[in-house]
Design a protein around this nucleic acid. Structure first.
Length: 190
DNA sequence: GCGACAG
DNA sequence: ATCTTGTCGC
């Protein structure tokens, strides 16, 4: 595998297009709120800097680990045609996966960075994996398939991008977008 | 009514 | 997601 996942957040940052989200946030419907804008960003990139199109996209949200097995990372993957990995920072309780005692003990059993356990639906189907992304953080991230990638590759790739708990592409995109807002739109009050 | 709730 | 208070570690 030869992948360059760090580039995309850098490019998104340099792209700096402000958008206005209209759809409200409703758990389970994140894709309807965010997909159009993420897709547009990818399309701008393809048009302006095709050489920098990423080989894989890290999405801040779930892929198959979703009420209807089709979260934001799946929407963006299908519409862009690019491989996508879904990485959620919080557990979406879905299809028999709950924050149960059992779940908590599985988390406690994750000893070191790279350790993971499957998130299986009642049917037994693996919808994603809980990954201890670094030695330091005891709180896992939740990785699932978005598009054109297997769960295991997604998990390995995510771990390989974690300097801290959140994989660097997502962390940097988050960071730099907030920094952009701070410098260009300081404290808007009434 | 009560609990759950990716971002 | 946001806001806030406090603590630990480099």
């Amino acid at each position: 595998m030869r992948l360059c996942p760090l580039i995309f957040s850098q490019v998104l940052y340099e792209d700096s297009q402000m958008v206005t989200l209209t759809a409200p946030y409703i758990a389970g419907f994140l894709a309807f709120r965010e997909t159009p804008f993420l897709l547009e960003a990818l399309q701008r990139l393809e048009r302006n800097q095709p050489r920098l199109l990423p080989q894989v996209v890290f999405v801040d949200g779930n892929g198959l680990f979703h009420y209807r097995e089709f979260g934001l990372a799946c929407h963006l993957g299908v519409l862009s045609g690019l491989p996508c990995v879904g990485v959620a920072k919080n557990l979406l309780q879905v299809q028999g996966v709950y924050k149960s005692e059992e779940h908590q003990s599985k988390i406690a059993a994750l000893q070191k960075g790279g350790d993971s356990f499957p998130l299986a639906a009642a049917s037994g189907k693996v919808l994603g994996k809980a990954l201890r992304s670094s030695d330091k953080s005891s709180k896992p991230v939740y990785v699932s398939v978005g598009h054109k990638i297997s769960v295991d590759t997604a998990v390995h790739l995510t771990h390989s991008c974690c300097r801290y708990r959140v994989p660097e592409p997502i962390r940097q995109a988050d960071f730099r977008s907030r920094e952009y807002l701070r410098t260009h739109f300081p404290a808007a009050d009434t």
